[in-house]
Amino acid sequence: MTEYKLVVVGAGGVGKSALTIQLIQNHFVDEYDPTIEDSYRKQVVIDGETCLLDILDTAGQEEYSAMRDQYMRTGEGFLCVFAINNTKSFEDIHHYREQIKRVKDSEDVPMVLVGNKCDLPSRTVDTKQAQDLARSYGIPFIETSAKTRQGVDDAFYTLVREIRKHKEKMSKDGKKKKKKSKTKCVIM
C-alpha cells in the first residue's frame, strides 16, 4: 500500500485542523484551538488504489514558523489553505509557496490551493482571484467548507493525484537520464 505524506499549511484560523478532522473523523470542530502540530493517518481508496494518507496539520501562528522547514522537508505534497473571508490569509499563500519551493529546492512541488469556509456569506476573496492565482502557479484550486464537508475529500484526493503525477514524471525523467548515460565512448 502506497503511503502519501501530505502537509496542510496556511495562516492561523483558516480551518486547516477543521478540514483535516472532517476528512479523518467526519465531524466539524467549530471551536478554535490553535494547533502546534498534529499528525493523522487514514486509509482510503483513490482511483481504485488503496493508500495510506499521513497528514500533518501544522501551526499557522507566526511564533511556530521555525518548525516549518522541518515538516516541509518531509512532506510530499501540500494543501495551501486560505479562508475566503480573510484576504490576508490569501496573500500569505505566496509566502508559504515560496518557502516550500526553497526548502524542497524545487520549482515543481505537488500543491493544491484550497479556499476554505465557502459556506460563509462574508467572502472577501473572489473565486476568480483564487483561480487566477492557482493557474499562475500551475496547481489545482478547490473551494471547501469544513463545516458542510463540501470539497473536503476532493481537496485531499486531488493532492494525492498531483503527487502521483509528480512521481510518474520524475521516474520518466530518471529513465531518460539513465538511457543517456548508457551511451559509451570508444577510443581507438
Rank of each mutant, 00 (worst) to 15 (best):
L53H: 04
Y64I: 15
I21D: 10
H27E: 12
G13P: 13
N26A: 13
V14G: 11
E37S: 03
I21A: 14
V29L: 13
E62N: 14
T2D: 13
Q61Y: 12
D57Y: 01
K42Y: 06
K16G: 02
E63L: 04
Y32N: 05
A59S: 14
S17D: 01
K42D: 05
A18G: 10
E49C: 08
G60A: 05
V8D: 02
L56A: 04
C51V: 10
D33Y: 15
C51R: 06
D47W: 03
D47Q: 08
G10P: 00
I21N: 13
S39F: 08
L19F: 10
D47G: 09
D57K: 02
K16A: 03
Q25Y: 06
E3P: 14
D38F: 02
Y4L: 13
I55A: 10
T50A: 13
V44Q: 10
V8E: 02
G12C: 13
V29D: 10
I24K: 05
L56R: 03
K42V: 10
Y4E: 11
R41L: 08
E3H: 10
Q22F: 04
T58H: 08
I21H: 15
H27P: 01
I21L: 12
A11L: 14
E63D: 14
S39A: 13
E3C: 07
E62G: 11
P34I: 09
Q61F: 15
G48S: 11
G10D: 00
G60R: 05
D30V: 09
I36M: 11
V14H: 11
S17K: 01
Q43M: 04
E49S: 12
Q22N: 13
P34L: 07
A18I: 07
D38W: 14
Y4M: 09
G13W: 11
I21M: 14
V45R: 13
Y64K: 04
E49I: 06
E63Y: 05
T20Y: 02
T20P: 08
S17F: 01
T50G: 10
L52V: 13
T58S: 08
V45G: 10
L53F: 11
Q61K: 04
G60Y: 07
Q25E: 10
L56Q: 04
S17N: 02
E63H: 06
E62K: 08
A59M: 15
H27Q: 13
I46V: 09
V44N: 08
L19E: 13
Y64T: 15
D33V: 10
